[in-house]
Design a protein around this nucleic acid. Structure first.
Lengths: 331, 331
DNA sequence: TTGTAAGCGTTATCAT
DNA sequence: ATGATAACGCTTACAA
């Protein structure tokens, strides 16, 4: 008893291969009597369709790719990554699409390109990345593509799903203002990355809305040490502040020791607001008030959109997810 | 100009399809002249082989699966995960195997099983998991399988690659002893997980080697809060100690505030040793001395072994990787 | 060394 | 509603 083929099932059930194929694919035009007879044969023989054959004949791959630019994948250490995958996997699980991982490095960029256009997948999910992602533009109309986190350069016709960083930052800073702070500094992220830009923008917006003057700005690169450096700059600047809005948790926490050394209490003298709800934020002293991004949901939405596109539908080109405030002890 | 097929390349180069196939697959028995002529045609036409067809004809999938039990995937938030994937991807990148991700939940266990045995992949990498992984035993001789982190229940004939937790724990505790501590407590992990068991065992071993009495033991579940609770138990136990060896960083850091509240200096009064070299360990105050596990390497070795097995070789059934000490400020 | 031709297991197009 | 019968694009004996 080897691997049963469709043909064997057909013989077993006393019907043609075509009919078995119909049953397997849920074609409605099959006499129920026959259908269940075929189904019984399938079960009895433990028949499992052969993916390759099916793909070859139908010209569909039954797979979608998750493309993670290597630069992003350094942020791989990033718990986000796992959450997004879980969201994707959760959705794909109800279909019979398979998830193929592609770590795209400079070295294999062309290989990736060929892979995606080579009919190996029915669509691709591209995880957020920095500038310089010129390459995907041409792909957009060759294969269904969904971006998670909008590329810095808007790709015409691209379908994206992202967390609304600007709104989230406004919400965050609004919360700080609500706590009574008036001179709110920020440790901004790199302005080459969209989140960096938008979170800074949100800070400005919230301040403007409240009729407050913008406080001092220092820039970091999302690392803890850059946060430490930025906090020193802020202090050295001489401009007074009673709160810091950091563009991510790591930079916020990097500021902690600096403030402490300066004899400043958190949140007593200076409130600190983070962003990301990273695991770090829970264990710091005081625990960091921050913004939570719905990453599992992001993954799920990406997958859903891609499936829709593969199904020839035309989903909204841009979906914004909302981050939520996580109150802990630093504001 | 549609997707070029092997046939078109053959026509273009004026040879048979078989020859083109040989060139594509690097069969050595092709006249160099012809080979390069074919290659030129391939390049010119931008020919990319069709995976499905190739797979169907050759009865090979050209893909390996990475199976992550969902239980493990909660540890997904775990940066380890990304590191292992990178290691795997790095190795696979030089081949033309594809990486297929499978998140295995209770719900789709059978689906996974069928997928793996259904000829969809040439082999699978199974990421470490708890007890109760009865299911893979039967797979071991049906499809090449490599475990990362040994399953609690030894699967006969299974090929594993793991970090030597026992040796690492000994090394860690040895370091603590070397720093002059004599009464070393431990916050152990769950004894249902191999790392939990082995790290506790390593602690015992190192103490015994040094002729020291074992200090008090408290158990946690690898979470920060469980570490906090365990530290309280340790303190409440009344048995004095001048060091804590925690089975992971999170638990170690969970103990920090408890020690501090008790007026104990780290490492002055109590040294704290972690395990994992998680990102947390760098940003704590004081930064945590801990053990680093070579996760990228783990992924790479897993992939290498699997490729060897797919290639009909018989790699060592068990490879142990060594963790290394990362000295920071808590010991 | 190269070509011929028979599959590989499905799907899809026509008839029936 | 069901059944023949071509494709689908490639690999692989086997023949030349």
């Amino acid at each position: 008893m080897k691997k049963p083929t469709l043909e064997m099932v057909a013989a077993h059930a006393g019907v043609s291969r075509a009919t078995v194929s119909r049953v397997v694919n849920g074609t409605p035009t099959v006499e129920p009597t026959i259908a269940s007879r075929v189904q019984r044969s399938i079960d009895e023989l433990h028949y499992v369709p052969n993916r390759a054959a099916r793909s070859l004949a139908s010209n569909r791959a039954g797979a979608v790719a998750l493309v993670v630019p290597e630069s992003t994948s350094k942020v791989f250490t990033d718990p986000f990554f796992g959450a997004v995958i879980m969201g994707i996997a959760g959705v794909l699980d109800d279909t019979d699409f398979t998830l193929t991982m592609i770590i795209e490095s400079e070295a294999n960029a062309e290989k990736t390109h060929r892979y995606l256009t080579g009919g190996n997948v029915d669509g691709a999910l591209v995880l957020s990345h920095h500038a310089g992602d010129r390459s995907y533009g041409s792909l957009t109309d060759r294969v269904p593509l969904v971006y998670g986190g909008r590329p810095v350069v808007e790709v015409p016709g691209a379908v994206c799903i992202d967390v609304d960083n600007l709104a989230a930052a406004r919400l965050a800073v609004g919360h700080v203002i609500g706590s009574g702070r008036r001179r709110i500094a920020t440790i901004a992220g790199p302005q080459t990355m969209r989140p960096g830009v938008e979170r800074l923008e949100g800070w400005r917006g919230a301040l403007a809305d409240a009729g407050l003057e913008p406080g001092p700005i220092a820039y970091g690169d999302f690392t803890t040490t850059s946060g430490t450096r930025a906090a020193r700059e802020l202090l050295a600047g001489g401009e007074p502040f009673d709160a810091i809005f950091a563009a991510n948790d790591q930079m916020a926490l990097g500021a902690y020791p600096v403030l402490r050394e300066a004899g400043l209490q958190i949140p007593g003298d200076v409130a600190v607001m983070g962003f990301d709800d990273s695991p770090f934020s829970q264990t710091s002293e005081p625990p960091l008030t921050t913004m939570n991004q719905p990453m599992v949901r992001l993954g799920a939405e990406m997958a859903r959109k891609l499936l829709a596109m593969i199904d020839k539908q035309h989903p909204e080109p841009l979906t914004m997810l909302h981050a939520s405030l996580v109150e802990r002890g630093s504001v």
